[in-house]
């Protein structure tokens, strides 16, 4: 039963309607769009583009990010649960009826109805490759920005292999994170690199790809790079104008050994100064006991190659605006810090 005094919203001039819609959250706008087709159309037309972002993992939840809060649209099993909401300080949930096309249809309904222009994250998780692939194809066609794309360690490896050509057409801007173990004959070329790539089984990522990589940050685990590859990379890096974006490189490879030199140094490569030197970016992601390497144009990098649990190369490129070089005492843990 509604006790509110009614107000004829659709008789408002468009600029007022736009202002009212601007003040609504994603749950409000979704419900308004469900009032009637006309209402849905007007909310699309007048809602305008927003800085809201959307996240989808191919399942039964779609999340809209609004500043610091998130609004989760969950699939409800029973009609009596439709539009039931749980409102929290930051996380909010609403049960809704998913359309016949499931999460994929809802994803595009929300994208269009709420005027969303950026996908915060798209993730392939167990059993979701088909849905994510459908969404990714349309996003690639629309040339829409996807900030983060994650491939989980799913069982449907061949489906992911088949999907990869679509991935190469996508506009992934911030991060590509891959946990999947691809088959030995797998090959993939990035057309455009995001700011960051993290590949936990990177045996397919070749040294030529590393040479062409435009990322700010590269993390490769289970790499096949050997000392010679890494030396070649550093030789190239030293030339002026190469790798203009790169700030951080981390490579874990069983093929790094203590038999051949990298930059004329036999690994492990590190300093034994007292006090020890820690170099970090804005205080994070530091390298302790690194060796200074200088580029032809004077840019400084800090290199460390060590044999811990895995042989590992760490390289950090200095930018005077954010790089912190500090002396540390012996009792400080020398592991790399949080990501920046």
């Amino acid at each position: 039963m509604v006790f509110q005094m009614p107000i004829a919203l659709l008789k408002f001039p468009n600029d007022l309607l736009r202002e009212v819609f601007r003040l609504c959250n994603p749950f409000d706008l979704y419900k308004i769009s469900k009032c009637s087709k006309k209402c849905s159309q007007r909310s699309i037309t007048l809602g305008g583009a927003k800085n809201w972002k959307i996240t989808y993992s191919g399942g039964n939840v779609i999340t809209i990010w609004v500043d610091g809060s998130n609004y989760n649209f969950n699939q409800a099993d029973y009609p009596e649960d439709y539009f039931q909401m749980t409102i929290g300080r930051y996380s909010n949930y609403m049960d809704i009826e998913f359309p016949n096309g499931g999460g994929v249809d809802l994803f595009f309904y929300l994208l269009d109805t709420l005027g969303i222009r950026i996908v915060k994250s798209l993730e392939i998780t167990f059993g979701t490759i088909a849905n994510v692939a459908k969404v990714a194809k349309v996003l690639a066609d629309r040339k829409m920005e996807v900030e983060h794309f994650v491939i989980g360690n799913v069982e449907e490896v061949q489906d992911v292999v088949d999907f990869m050509p679509t991935l190469s057409q996508m506009n992934i801007t911030q991060e590509f994170h891959c946990f999947l173990n691809f088959p030995p004959d797998f090959h993939f070329e990035f057309v455009k690199y995001p700011r960051k790539v993290v590949i936990t089984d990177s045996s397919w990522f070749t040294i030529d790809q590393l040479f062409e990589c435009t990322c700010v940050r590269i993390e490769l685990e289970k790499s096949t790079f050997n000392n010679h590859d890494l030396d070649a990379f550093l030789q190239k890096w030293k030339k002026a104008g190469t790798f203009p974006n790169l700030r951080r490189l981390q490579i874990l490879s069983d093929f790094i050994d203590d038999e051949s030199p990298i930059q004329e140094m036999i690994p492990p490569i590190q300093t034994f100064n007292n006090p020890r030197i820690r170099v970090s970016i804005d205080g994070h992601d530091g390298i302790v006991d690194g060796v200074r390497v200088t580029k032809d144009d004077g840019t400084v990098g800090w290199l460390k190659v060590e044999f811990g649990v895995w042989p590992e190369l760490n390289f950090l490129i200095v930018d005077p605006t954010d790089t912190v070089v500090e002396e540390i005492h012996d009792d400080v843990d020398d592991e790399t810090d949080d990501e920046w």
Binding site: V2, P6, L9, K31, I32
Partner: peptide
């Protein structure tokens, strides 16, 4: 709910 919104905003 959408039904209530329809009533409040005379949609």
């Amino acid at each position: 709910s959408p039904e209530e919104i329809r009533e409040i905003w005379m949609i």
